[in-house]
Nucleic acid binder design. Structure first.
Lengths: 144, 144
DNA sequence: TTATATTAGTTGCTACTGCAACTATTGCTA
DNA sequence: TAGCAATAGTTGCAGTAGCAACTAATATAA
């Protein structure tokens, strides 16, 4: 591997791309008055798929710090999109669930997200997707 | 492009990989007592390369908001790694430059960064790098 | 069974992000 | 040249990120 190669700013490119996507998503949510942030959406999406999970599990699934999840959930509870429910078996645990309003929000926002993903991948192939996944996974797993 | 494909969480994978890299870099900086954050490093790196630029130019180069750059620079000035110098030609502009201490910091930290890049790319080829760049650029340019 | 370790979650703190509103300065145009 | 638009930068605000220290509850080991 050449030195030029190693010096190249892949970190920067990842960061720039992600920011661009995040920005686009947020602007689209705002334009459609969805009253939601990108990260709030990510939590809702996972809660929809897994129905009833704890802060910890949600944190692992979303690659977020438990602290961060706890605070985003706080906001979602205030918006009445999520309810917290203590576990009777283990009183340390708190189960999270979408409310009806939360489920409705999911169904409202999901089409926007699908559209935006299509936009982002325009002109790219499934092969490209596989490659991207492979390379990102490799980098991820290289890091101690 | 299939629906399964579009539903796949590429955003999430990008985010997770970037967080992992960022975390690894920060922990390495801390372990070597470099007293610097990853984003502070990115600004220093660009100031080293471009010597004398404004907040605006630095923001464009790093894909950061001018606001963010302004505040990170504030911290770097406090650490005496950067000096601000008003432009006599255009009194709205402020030129930024590394101090000697800032230049020293750059030279101190740079080897760590090169090592970490090598670690991240272990087992991957230049071809992989080219592919990643191509795909990320395509996504970036697809976004309106 | 008591002491200790582990686990779940919250709170405090510092830093990065991005929008909106603001000041100061410069450029452009009627 | 007066008036307005554009540009550079800062400040206020809300949200995300992650570490450290904390509480509460559960699990484990002497």
């Amino acid at each position: 591997m050449t030195d030029t190669f190693v010096s190249n700013p892949s970190f920067f490119k990842l960061d720039a791309t992600l920011k661009r996507i995040r920005n686009y998503w947020q602007k689209t949510f705002d334009a459609h008055k969805k009253d939601i942030t990108v990260d709030q959406w990510l939590l809702i999406e996972n809660l929809y798929k897994h129905k009833k999970i704890t802060h910890n599990e949600l944190a692992r699934m979303t690659s977020k710090d438990i602290t961060t999840v706890s605070r985003i959930i706080e906001l979602l509870v205030k918006k009445e999109l999520v309810v917290r429910e203590g576990s009777p078996q283990d009183r340390r645990k708190v189960f999270l669930q979408l409310t009806q309003k939360g489920t409705d929000k999911y169904k409202e926002v999901r089409p926007l997200v699908l559209d935006m993903r299509k936009t982002g991948w325009a002109g790219l192939t499934e092969q490209d997707y596989t490659e991207l996944t492979r390379i990102l996974d490799a980098i991820y797993n290289n890091i101690p």
